[in-house]
């Protein structure tokens, strides 16, 4: 008699799914464009890594090689991989966008350009990484005074900068709508918008708030605003 098993079998890691086709496609891409990087599976953790060096060429012919490790999440390609400074070449520093364990912060998570459906997604990721590393070298060459190119503020302030940009940089709107974004205030769709515009919420900021919440994620918002603000406890929202 057929008995349905109650124990769920361990799902296959992403690189074994579809007969390994996803991995083969990514390997082909890496081999063609970043041949000094090699896929390496860690059988113990069941994780896949891309290890090797990214060599940045200056026009004068000087090559600077930087050891990197790219770690793939179990649900790849749903979410993007993470890149690390494998050789400890750069110091951990928020000013240079490198956090614990040498993790490179390539972008503000809600602005991640990762498109899981793009066949060239990993190539785009590696190109972004190469540009990020080039920016590290520019940062060093210019005396570590100013990060080359645009950047978000560090930590929560960076997320707020993003939220402001989604609210047309209107600080008053941001202050009025933050409780809505954080889920502390739940206006009805036909109620007046908390921004004070006298328009219905659904016709005013409902879609912007929904976009902000979906891009940042409820968990991240909770993490950002519910944790104690050690620098300024009075500023802690909840």
């Amino acid at each position: 008699m057929y008995r349905r098993s109650h124990s769920r079998s361990k799902p296959k890691p992403w690189f074994e799914r579809e007969g390994g086709e996803i991995l083969r496609a990514e390997q082909g891409l890496v081999q063609a464009h970043y041949p000094s990087l090699t896929f390496r599976a860690d059988t113990e953790s069941g994780r896949m890594y891309l290890d090797g060096q990214i060599t940045l060429q200056a026009n004068c012919g000087v090559a600077t090689s930087i050891a990197v490790r790219i770690s793939f999440p179990p649900n790849y390609p749903e979410t993007e991989p993470t890149a690390y400074d494998a050789g400890g070449r750069f110091p951990v520093s928020a000013d240079r966008h490198i956090i614990n364990e040498g993790q490179f912060c390539l972008w503000l998570p809600p602005c991640c350009p990762w498109d899981k459906d793009d066949p060239s997604r990993l190539l785009r990721f590696l190109d972004e990484l190469a540009v990020f590393l080039e920016r590290q070298l520019v940062y060093d060459a210019t005396g570590r005074q100013e990060w080359p190119g645009p950047q978000y503020k560090h930590g929560t302030a960076g997320y707020e900068e993003f939220m402001l940009s989604k609210l047309a940089n209107n600080e008053e709107d941001f202050r009025s709508l933050l409780p809505v974004i954080l889920g502390q205030l739940r206006p009805g769709r036909n109620e007046p918008c908390p921004c004070g515009s006298k328009q219905k919420y659904k016709r005013c900021h409902a879609s912007s708030v929904a976009d902000i919440v979906s891009r940042i994620g409820r968990n991240t918002l909770d993490f950002l605003y519910k944790r104690p603000n050690l620098r300024n406890p009075a500023a802690t929202m909840m």
Binding site: A94, D95, R96, H97, I98, I99, C105, L106, W107, L108, P109, C111, C112, P113, L123, R124, D127, E128, V131, F132, R135, W147, G149, P150, Q151, Y152, H154, G155, G158
Partner: peptide, 11 residues
Amino acid sequence: RSFVPSKSFAE
């Protein structure tokens, strides 16, 4: 390949 690089961030 051409693209506008992402605006950097650090937690």
